[in-house]
Design a protein around this nucleic acid. Sequence first.
RNA 1: GGUCGCAUAGCUCAGUCGGUUAGAGCGCUUGCCUCACAUGCAAGAGGUCCGGUGUUCGAGUCACCGUGCGACCACCA
Length: 884
Amino acid sequence: MALDKTYDPISVEKRWFPFWMQGGYFRPEKNPSGQPFSIVIPPPNITGLLHMGHALNNTLQDILCRYKRMDGYRVLWVPGTDHAGIATQNVVERQLQQQGIDRWQLGREKFVERVWTWRDESGRNIVNQLKALGVSCDWSRERFTMDAGLSRAVREVFVRLYNEGLIYRGRYLINWCPRCETALSDLEVEPHESDGQLYHLTYPRSDGKGSVTIATTRPETMLGDTAVAVHPEDERYRELVGQTLTLPVLGRQIPVIADTRVDKEFGTGALKVTPAHDFTDFEIGKEHGLPTISVLDEKARMTQEAGPYAGLDRYECRTKLVEDLQQSGALIRSEPYKIMLGRCYRCQTVVEPFLSTQWFVRIKPLAEVALAAVKDGRTQFFPTHWEKTYFAWMENIRDWCISRQLWWGHRIPAWYCGDCGEMMVSREDITVCTKCGSGKITQETDVLDTWFSSGLWPFSTMGWPDQTEDLKTFYPTSVLVTGFDIIFFWVARMMMLGLKFMGEVPFRHVYIHALVRDERGQKMSKTKGNVIDPLEVMEAYGTDALRFTLVALSAMGRDIRLSAERITGYRNFANKVWNAARFVLMNQVSGSKFQVPEKYEGLGLADRWILSRLHHTIREVRQALDDYRFNEVAALIYQFTWHEFCDWYLELSKIALESTDTGEQERTRAVLATVLDAVLRLLHPLMPFITEEIWHALHPDRTEDSIMVQPYPVFDLTLVDDEAEQRMGLLMDVIRAVRNIRSEMNLPPGQELTAIVIPKVETAETQLRSHEAYVRRLARLGEIRYQADGERPRGAALAVIEGAEIHLPLAGLVNLQEETKRLEREIGKVANDLAGVQRKLSDAKFVERAPEEVVEKERDRAAQLEEKRLSLEKSLARLRQIEA
RNA sequence: GGUCGCAUAGCUCAGUCGGUUAGAGCGCUUGCCUCACAUGCAAGAGGUCCGGUGUUCGAGUCACCGUGCGACCACCA
């Protein structure tokens, strides 16, 4: 198969995914004897479409999987999607809203059906987009957090935790979203600063002896006050403790109590205590045995307890109440005040602390084990500093509220008897009361936090609670690749639940990658309108270009700023690879298959050089992949391919290919093909499509085979050739020196020049002579003359390189004043460098204390610079003579 | 309030173990349609490595202080 003249990513990319799927290349069964390597995908929510974060996350995983597969591992990458309880429910609710109905009108059953329909569509879309990205999961193992198997795992975990007393049910103050009408965990509340008022209210003493002033940002909660608290050591209020106050408006008698949680410095030092609507107050209330009065309901409307304000929305109530308090004189003053408001992470509604009966996981025992597993290194974070974040959270963890008053999710496996009130938690559905035999049984209506099921993902997807082959082979997984935003939500929960139920960590490594931001460093969001859609990029530049860009920008511990220019740059790289391949293929003899020389015997200098450079690259690329330094992988391959293989070897190969020596031609063809083949394999995990396309063009007889299963290049020390690198270095220096002069002197590019070389080291002349053709071609020289040290040519431009002087006679070509200026500049630079080195060397302490080889290097360098300066100065003197 | 991260070329960023002359991409300047590629080739300009102090023969790199930015955590009403 020949390559088209122009690289068209779209047509290349659509071809290969079906090919890979049909060939079963993504399945671990393809390589049953390999060492296991496994990853579970962070299951995308079924709420919408793929965004740049997914593109990055999955590209990185795909790179690891493809690399390991090529390297002989038996790779399992488990795909799937997350039902994303509250998020998905909200999406479907919004759709209903557009049709003018709400979920209550539809009813629970019908609503859940609607969500399943949505899931079918959305899930399919997401999966298709992942496939378009080239994601090499084993799609035959695709899971969904609410499929039958995972639902069974959820029940099993719930029942076991309950039976062990690690799940309990009780009436506590929790975070409540009055729009979603559900409880939220602490993590699901996002604090945001907003403008508020600090109101100073005065509560009269019941005995008529004065009053106390308190400060609050939420005056409407005063209707639920059951005490006022002061600090026990606060002199101002010492005699007040134990007295009774009369709550304005409602006239309730409330005590003044002493509690150390009160900050003497804040406001007036007196705190109104509302146990039903504030977490601190709840604690204080519990300790002092205060009653809890809920004045807000589940929709954040005022309850009957709010007296005249019953039925009002919380903010309407605030406005009205403040007016009334002002009239009555209870409001002393109010001032603007910045307050932190907790908002629902899914709908941004201000959440309320709300007293209700919920289910909780007693988390400390689980957290301790999960903490230890990272401390002792059974699981390692990359970059390591995320471990601190993990530790801090685990050490201060609080019980996890797992019940949600939603309709979309795993229904909690608890049943209540309508007759005797018995509560039963069970793996199987319950129809008859186990205590009284009654058939009046109803199931708990609450569902589980969506993170409860995703916390089981690493083992539930492999068939747990059954002891499957997959579990035995692939658990613990090798690495988890995810963003830092879900370390607590997800990574921490998987650690705790994995250790609890599998007795071992869920993953050995956790690679935390960057957040993808826009080019100005802003978080991408629909409302800001700065979202770069991966699918649009893939259409415009190609999937390979997008993948390579994301990887190239993925420095550890740093956010990614994505810009169109960068993507263009890497699209150009793909094009470069394409054209290099076209050149290599063009020069293969038709019908004959390229042969790598068995022992690499009889190679030319350029061949030895490029193979040596290739193997340096192979070694470094592998090391970088093993260390998750993805950006370096990209940079190494880019640098080698473009600036060594294309810029130098391809150009040099043209000389050999034009030669009359058929052996040399043949050898060059083989090396070209060998290096290209290695580049393709190195690059394949990053750019899977273009490499597969070119690989097939290079191996026309292997149409059924795939680059996916070719070995990843292996470092071969015997091909590292320092001598070849040194010799090529000399040739490259000469070529660059001549090009530099030509360019600076503005000499016409087509004009052939004559160079006079004065070797400064013995080997230079032989080395240059033996590869003169290279130099003549790439530096466009007509003739190279060699001359012993002694009389210098007059009226010539000079370049001094390591090992030789290069003189280019310019008589009649340019104004020699140009060269004078150029030499003066050059001498300035050299003198500058030399001064620096000499300063160092003249420091006795440096010579004495620095390691021998460092000092030696400096001495060499000083000598070199000295010689260079001398040559340049002599040349300058000669020019001045001519001018004079 | 606590914790963590970041600050290097015009822009976006690399820089491993402290060691010669601090790199890349994009942008910019100059010259080239050289038969793989103008999505290209060649050459070049461009740096107070945020500021300060310290450790060291030697600091972009290590320590401390400061400044600026960002993120996360947190019950000051």
